[in-house]
Design a protein around this nucleic acid. Sequence first.
DNA 1: TGGGTCGCCGGAAACGTTACCATTGCGCGA
DNA 2: TCGCGCAATGGTAACGTTTCCGGCGACCCA
Lengths: 348, 348
Amino acid sequence: MTKQKKHPTLKEVAKRAGVGTTTVSRVINAVEHVEPWTKARVERAIKELGYLPNHAARVLKGHKTRTIGLVVPSIADPFFSSCAEVLQGIARQHGFLLIVLTTHNESAMEREAVNTLIQHRVDGFVISPADAESDELRSLLTRVMVPVVALDRPVAGAVAPSVVADNFVGAEHATHHLIAHGYKRIACLTGEIELYTIRERARGYQAAMAAAGLKAMRNTSIYDCTACESAIEKMLKEPDPVDAIFTLKNSVTVDAFEVLQRMGVPIPEKVALIGYDDFQLAGTVRPSITVVQQPIEELGKTAAELLFRHLKGSSAVAMPAEAKARQQVLLKTSLIPRASCGCRPDPS
Amino acid sequence: MTKQKKHPTLKEVAKRAGVGTTTVSRVINAVEHVEPWTKARVERAIKELGYLPNHAARVLKGHKTRTIGLVVPSIADPFFSSCAEVLQGIARQHGFLLIVLTTHNESAMEREAVNTLIQHRVDGFVISPADAESDELRSLLTRVMVPVVALDRPVAGAVAPSVVADNFVGAEHATHHLIAHGYKRIACLTGEIELYTIRERARGYQAAMAAAGLKAMRNTSIYDCTACESAIEKMLKEPDPVDAIFTLKNSVTVDAFEVLQRMGVPIPEKVALIGYDDFQLAGTVRPSITVVQQPIEELGKTAAELLFRHLKGSSAVAMPAEAKARQQVLLKTSLIPRASCGCRPDPS
DNA sequence: TGGGTCGCCGGAAACGTTACCATTGCGCGA
DNA sequence: TCGCGCAATGGTAACGTTTCCGGCGACCCA
């Protein structure tokens, strides 16, 4: 099994069809100037031999791989896997393949990933940078000679167009929503504060609190559930205890929800909760959880479209450099009001 | 920007370093017989030019792409995206790239995907076939001349080794669990019955019911939530109403749970519920939901290891054909008992 | 009827790399 | 002192395509 019988080559097809290699190449690429009769013979030979063009040889000659890359922290993350799904769909429509590389938010793996993509001569790629400010990444990306678009997190220095959700306004909006409901002691549980998205959300939270003349209470050390638990316990024991929690990340939302449930703290009566990023059962759980919803599909779709516009455009008019690079798409988030913020009771 | 400045070639590196192309090739591939001094000069030239080997040319020469493929119904599905994550991780460790292609369970897209992978001369791939019995797929796979392993669903005819979870026993076990709790009118809501996994689970359910002398009640028409709702309503209105539901698929579990909640049916007092496949909040929701858990990571890991064993092994001893092809790994599932089957009340 | 154009086709170079073989020194045993 | 083997290196032929270019009929129009 898995015998190494060697693939048939174009030359063999040509011989079998009794034509020149050029002719075979022409019928494969649907170029005109070939007699229907000849074409039929070639097609028959192709079928008989089970011939499939050798991609490597094509690339070597033509300098186009019809392949794009996707560099993300994790492909198991529902956010990125959804993006990947739409990206691969659109790529396929254009006749492109998708190569996926994960970084776990480590710059070293990220650099390695980009280099690998260059080596494979991808025609372009989408990247969700671990660190927007990284000089190394920036210089790598300028050296790359192929369209790049940043997804979910921009890269500083206008080195590539980016498609991101408006984390700042999303968080500001959610915080304001809590404030409008009369909550005053609103805490913010962040997750990895070194990430661009989380940082922006934290900024939005702080801006909203400041605008309302309230004191921001941020806890940036929430990585796992036990940390979450002790943080929440502490907040509730204070003389002036927390009356609302804004979580900046999916897993932290779930952790906080579990902890509050386990402690028997009524939501939203004692403590209200809003989470950033929607998830599967947010609306099913009791109480249902109010969240900031990100336009995930649209993020992926926009990134893909941007990339392919550049891919096609590069051979055409080629819009001026700055116009391309500065292209920053900011997508709106939306608040999904449910029970955990006190907006409405759940039916039961 | 994205200037097409052409990549530096090995020959240019050679010229700049004042050596022959062979020597440069040798230092790149870490072959011996090269003076340290020469090596240093070459390395400097490489760095100065920012040279990266042209993958296409390498492939054309050496017939190895160091690339593997993954063909799955959807990459947005948490099950497959988790598999993809571990697969790409292991591939990376071996210095391999991963190309992802989705099929949406359509045979046409599947065939196209496999052909694309062949064209790209991947060294092997993992596939989750839409239809295990498809003759077309089987013949395609025998023609493929490269190691293939089937994931989550086998392919008939021993044409490739497979790594699947034991859906039959998993479902049987869950059904038996309900029976042991004293439930008798146990319904089964299936989802896409044409899929191998669902079919196996349904068989397991039926076997367990038959063994207990109970009448199986299968509803195979559950695709969306409204269908789910009407099915459940009907089942509860019968003279001898359902007292337990076994859902064969994640989304159906969630739908059923929502419907029961909305109808005010107490779980598990009036109707018990067990779902196939664990999901994020299954343990957080009230009542928490008992599920059959699949060894997702292990599935991915095993498939990857199997593939790479064949990849490496092909150059080595090459175990006899049948031994390879018949290799069928069956991984055990586990029941996670929670509140919805009546096993234990939720705390608080 | 002759020259120019056009449609169809094939030969061969080129793409960037690897691998085979040839070529050089050089130390060393006879 | 003379080969002989070995380490270090370079030349060059492939790998399978595409593409440029050139050949060869046939057709059209004067």
